[in-house]
């Protein structure tokens, strides 16, 4: 085990090379709906329990199923209304279980990125080869059902190994070349994209995905009231938009159809979407488009700046 995962060097927020998003926009805004499948009876993983109750744990399973049966259409209607294409963190087995949902997202040109096979299958305990096979399976499944070359990764249930990011980047390159498998949502160290150091030296970036703005973290872990969550989203936006005057920022709302699309939470979410998208200098986009643009225009400057600042510290 390591004291530091070694993905990035210390790089202070101030005095970085200035970012400007396409058309001079100040803030890149993206919404990442997690479209997940949880198994009712997954195999036991000795490192983490899927459900607190003995099989069948119908409460936890049921509310997640609600997300697919009821919530998905609601969130999609809202994102349509405000012109947002979702960037889906996908339990890729959902392509087999619920192809109707995949079809609706394809019709809207939403992005699909890998969130593993099932959200009840953890990375813990997998061998390197098994994790590589699981990641490849997820990217193959996305390709087979959507024709997309998966660009991003969020490990299933945020369960990682030390090699997760390396394996994702390597499998992406093996399958589709360097324009697949090039960004991760697994790290929360920054409000701007950052180059990530991997054993393959691939141009790979971390894209801010925000744990704090994640509806499940807000509603389930932090037990936030719905209207307060809406206010948090607006406050988060206000500050990042203001800082975007200096250098481009990113705001992400990671969502779950079983949280944000419950009837008592839709109003707060809609008010925030309405507020954010009503500002002129917002680039409403997807995770992949942000990562692409950054790799093309700012990645090299960032590397040079990081290395210069590290040198200055020595």
């Amino acid at each position: 085990m390591k004291a530091d995962p070694g993905f990035y060097d210390y790089w202070p927020y101030q005095d970085r090379p200035k970012i400007r998003w396409p058309d001079g926009k100040k803030l890149a805004f993206w919404v990442a709906p997690n479209i997940e499948f949880y198994e009712l009876n997954p195999p036991e993983n000795p490192h983490r329990k899927a459900w607190p109750q003995p099989y069948p744990a119908i409460q936890g399973y049921g509310i997640r199923d609600y997300g697919n049966r009821v919530g998905h259409q609601r969130q999609m209607d809202l994102l349509d209304k405000y012109g947002v294409r979702g960037s889906i963190s996908l339990s890729t087995a959902l392509c087999e279980h619920h192809p109707e949902i995949i079809q609706m997202c394809k019709e809207r040109d939403w992005e699909f990125f890998s969130h593993g096979i099932y959200n009840t299958r953890y990375t813990y305990g997998l061998s390197e080869q098994q994790e590589r096979d699981m990641i490849r399976d997820s990217m193959e499944t996305i390709y087979r059902h959507t024709n997309q070359h998966c660009a991003g990764y969020l490990a299933p249930a945020l369960s990682h190994s030390e090699l997760t990011l390396d394996l994702f980047a390597e499998v992406g390159t093996e399958m589709f070349g360097n324009n697949a498998g090039f960004y991760t949502c697994d790290l929360f160290h920054d409000d701007q994209p950052t180059p990530i150091k991997l054993r393959s030296d691939k141009r790979f970036v971390s894209i801010p995905y925000s744990l704090e703005m994640n509806d499940t973290i807000a509603y389930v872990v932090n037990k936030v009231e719905p209207r307060r969550y809406g206010q948090m989203l607006k406050d988060n936006f206000d500050r990042l938009y203001q800082e975007g005057e200096e250098s481009g920022t990113i705001m992400c709302i990671p969502t779950h159809n079983y949280q944000v699309a419950c009837p008592h939470r839709m109003k707060a979410f809609e008010e925030a979407l309405d507020y954010i998208t009503s500002h002129p200098d917002v680039w409403v986009t997807t995770g992949r488009e942000i990562a692409d643009y950054y790799r093309e225009h700012y990645y090299d400057a960032a590397l040079a700046d990081i290395s210069a600042k590290l040198g200055a510290n020595k």
Binding site: E39, A93, H97, I117, Y118
Partner: peptide, 14 residues
């Protein structure tokens, strides 16, 4: 195998 998915099919897993 932890990569065995016997119920990965259309519809529910039950």
């Amino acid at each position: 195998s932890p990569l065995h998915y016997p119920l990965r099919q259309y519809g529910m897993d039950h």
